[in-house]
């Protein structure tokens, strides 16, 4: 039972089920497609805006905002990679093939990440270049301050949020339960609730809200309504902590519970 054997087997599992393949394609298509449309329309209004109005607009926001939607299929991918085993019952066959829980879990996370990471990098780079060229002459450039870290941060963000989803799915042992928690959390919860002043003190620490700060898509930081109590890399650290917690929780559940 070598690591390569486990990885090869996990790779076969992923590529032989259509849904996992589709979620990765959709991550790319949604991010790049919506990125183009958003940057196109925001670029036009930016070009005609007064200097005072320009000061409140962030071109990077237009570049990466589509990732808030593009992350959803990637989260579904993470959930399916692990949770699909529980939904279908293949978890028993998998644990018969690789009875050591740690190796099985490690192999699964590694195989999932080995796909999620390159898909994240390709998606982020394509979104950046498509969106900036659609934005027009005032588009952010890689030489601008904060832009390189936004690009690197976006790649890290997508990879970490996918790993977070894999950990949650291992803890909950069901794809439907996992999506039932993750999708509202990522889509409605923090997006909608983040605007309510009272709860922002709490919601700013949710995994997506913390990790997205580096991409300039949580709103202008000089506006107290949006301002975070931490910096962009600390935000990424908060997301990393969430991810580690979810992965450890998944490991614990996998070791303790009967298959």
């Amino acid at each position: 039972m070598t690591v390569t054997a486990i990885l090869r087997s996990e790779w076969t599992k992923i590529r032989t089920v259509p849904s996992t393949v589709w979620t990765l394609l959709l991550t790319f298509a949604l991010s790049v497609g919506l990125g183009y449309l958003l940057a196109n329309s925001m670029g036009d209004s930016y070009a005609t805006a007064s200097p005072e109005r320009r000061a409140t607009l962030d071109p990077l926001f237009a570049t990466f905002y589509s990732l808030t939607l593009g992350q959803l299929p990637l989260v579904v991918f993470g959930v399916l990679v692990v949770g699909g085993e529980y939904g279908s019952g293949t978890i028993r066959a998998s644990l018969l093939a690789v009875p050591r829980r740690g190796r099985f879990y490690g192999g699964k996370l590694l195989a999932g990440t080995a796909l999620a990471f390159p898909v994240s990098v390709i998606t982020v780079l394509a979104t950046f270049f498509v969106a900036t060229s659609a934005f027009g002459p005032d588009a952010p450039s890689l030489r601008d301050e904060g832009v390189p870290s936004a690009v690197v941060g976006a790649c890290l963000y997508l990879t970490l949020i996918c790993l977070f989803a894999m950990g949650v799915a291992t803890m909950l042992r069901s794809p439907t339960r996992s999506l039932g928690i993750l999708l509202p959390l990522l889509f409605l919860g923090s997006q909608g609730l983040g605007n309510v002043p009272g709860v922002k003190a709490f919601t700013q620490y949710l995994p997506d809200q913390a990790g997205m700060l580096i991409m300039h898509i949580v709103g202008p930081q000089d506006d107290p309504r949006w301002a975070r109590d931490y910096g962009p890399w600390t935000g990424m650290g908060i997301l990393a902590l969430w991810t580690i917690a979810a992965l450890l929780g998944g490991h614990l559940v996998l070791r303790r519970r009967d298959a």
Partner: peptide
Amino acid sequence: LEAKALHNRRSAYHHLLWLAQSNR
């Protein structure tokens, strides 16, 4: 085992293939 352990969307060949690969 008695309980079902197959993914509905995966072919019989691929089911056996991933099992085989995991144990060389």
